[in-house]
C-alpha cells in the first residue's frame, strides 16, 4: 500500500488521511510524520480527516498519539474535517479525543495554526 502523503506548506504540514485506513498505514504514518516534523522544523501539523469514513478505537488512539507526539516535538497539531457521522460514532464508541485541538476544516485549521504559532513566538520573545 502507498504511504500517506504529507504536504509541506510553509512551516506547516498537511496530512490528508485517506478514506479507508489499515492499521499498518496509520502506524507508518506516525513514524514518517514525527521524522518529517523534525527534519523540516515544522511548527504545525494539520491532520485532515474530511475523507475518512471510519475511525475505530485503534485509529482514534493513533490520531491522539500523533497529536501528542507532535506537541512533544514542539509543534502544534490540529485535527480538522471530522464528519458528523464520524463524530457521533466516535462519541458512542467512547472516543472523545480529549485535549486535542480541532477545527472545522483545513482553512480554519490553518488560521488556528498561524495564531498558535504567533502566540508562541510572542510568548518566547516576552520571556527573553
Amino acid at each position: 500500500m502507498n504511504p500517506i502523503p504529507l504536504f509541506h506548506i510553509g512551516d506547516f504540514l498537511l496530512v490528508s488521511i485517506p478514506e479507508d485506513l489499515s492499521d499498518s498505514m496509520v502506524t507508518r504514518l506516525q513514524d514518517s510524520l514525527s521524522r518529517k516534523v523534525i527534519k523540516l522544523q515544522i511548527k504545525g501539523v494539520l491532520l485532515d480527516l474530511s475523507s475518512v469514513t471510519i475511525v475505530d478505537s485503534f485509529i482514534g488512539r493513533m490520531l491522539g498519539n500523533m497529536a501528542s507526539i507532535t506537541a512533544m516535538l514542539g509543534a502544534e497539531a490540529i485535527i480538522v474535517g471530522i464528519q458528523p457521522a464520524i463524530a457521533i460514532t466516535m462519541i458512542e464508541l467512547g472516543l472523545g479525543l480529549n485535549n486535542i485541538k480541532t477545527a472545522l476544516n483545513v482553512d480554519q485549521g490553518v488560521i488556528m495554526l498561524q495564531i498558535l504559532a504567533a502566540d508562541k513566538a510572542i510568548d518566547y520573545v516576552s520571556k527573553q
Partner: peptide
Amino acid sequence: RQTVKAWMIEQEFSLLEQTKLVTAISEIGR
C-alpha cells in the same frame, strides 16, 4: 468493511448507520 458498506449504500442505509456498523465490524474484526 468495504463489502458491508457497499451493501448498506445499495439498501439506502443512512451514512450514520453505515459508519456505525462498519466501525463495529472494525472493532470486532480486529
